[in-house]
Amino acid sequence: MKKTQKSIIKLENVWKIYEMGDVKVEALRGLSLDVKKHEFVAIKGPSGSGKSTAVNMVGCLDIPSTGKILLDGEDISLMGESDLAQIRGRKIGFVFQKFNLIPTLTAMENVMLPMVFQGTTAEDRQKRAKELLTMVELGDRIDHRPSELSGGQQQRVAIARSLANDPEVILADEPTGNLDSKTGKMVMFFLKKLHKTGKTIIMVTHDDKLAKHADRIEHLIDGKIEQKRKKRG
């Protein structure tokens, strides 16, 4: 696997503090993480370790209380919400635990949606969506709605959707969490396949077996990365 030294996502001493009335909750306490291009990184942590907050930060869905997040060298806390949405749509593809497909749209339309927000032409959208659905072996299901698909199929549609704008990073948040082990393996197969084609994969999980697929595992404990590293890539 080809590696460069260039960071794609870099978190520098990120703190996230939620204020709930008088109580301050420190969800992240100085999280630092450097993900290089073409890496496959697993972030592992028990519940309550700030995993969800970390996903939001890495996915540029939220802005830190203090600290810096650099997406491809750009500081996201300096961006407006709409600019951030555009960049997020272009550079990061999300695969969620609960699939999060739009229930009223067909598989094809779900995959085309991220391209709509980037202003891709209808012709290109259709071509690309078909290619991607074929890649995840759902070429014969393009007109099905999520409710007409199995969990594994829905997650594959979600993977196809995450690739719509050809992002550099795929952020998978417990991608097999709602699937049985067999379909979970299939999803992992596709994520590894993507990694081989040169995508950067960041996967958040609590499952040791899944984490082993990664080049590098980062342990999140008490809102920061534990300084012990396994299996350096």
Partner: peptide, 16 residues
């Protein structure tokens, strides 16, 4: 709400 969140995550601007 969730759909809106998904759309924003995959690149929808506030204006969209």
């Amino acid at each position: 709400t969730r759909e809106i969140g998904v759309m924003k995550a995959i690149g929808a601007r506030n204006g969209d």
